[in-house]
């Protein structure tokens, strides 16, 4: 399992609890960390958000964007623990991952830090309210909302 290279959780360290697969999670009542694969339904976790400290969403291929929806669904439901993206993650995905609510990134291949910094600062503003990234969209700024 790749290490967390970027953590956007102020004053915290990456959660080290062992993860279990989503299929095993419901039975394993002691588990506090879970892995979701692209085809799995993040909403299956919604009844259990209280006991979770880590949800790891995998990106086996960077071209498969299902994990973006998984992340937003969890954040929209109020999940506040670590939300980790792992797998085939390129530097150009960073700002989008962050906007969908990921606060920990564990790329298979570590990313160049300078490039990552540039990528995270690419967008001065954003057009959409994802709600989960805490950013005001351009329409809200335009109308003083």
């Amino acid at each position: 399992m790749a290490d967390v290279q970027f953590l956007f959780r102020e004053g915290e360290e990456a959660v080290s609890a062992p993860t279990v697969a989503l299929s095993a999670f419901a039975e394993d009542t002691n588990a506090t960390a879970v892995v979701i694969e692209p085809g799995e339904d993040a909403r299956a976790l919604l009844p259990h958000l209280d006991r979770l400290s880590l949800v790891e969403v995998t990106f086996p291929a960077f071209t498969d964007g299902r994990g973006f929806s998984s992340a937003r669904i969890l954040r929209e439901a109020g999940y506040t623990g670590e939300l980790r993206a792992s797998g085939d993650i390129g530097v150009d995905m960073l700002s989008h991952l962050h906007r969908c609510g990921f606060d920990a990134i564990a790329p298979n291949t570590p990313l160049d830090l300078a490039q990552a910094d540039t990528a995270l600062k690419t967008w001065p503003q954003v057009y959409q309210a994802t709600v989960v990234d805490g950013r005001k969209p351009i329409w809200a700024l335009r109308h003083g909302l």
Partner: peptide, 13 residues
């Protein structure tokens, strides 16, 4: 157009 530009959830459909 504005909503769909760089929508972070829908860039790898």
């Amino acid at each position: 157009r504005q909503w769909s530009s760089f929508h972070p959830e829908f860039l790898a459909l």
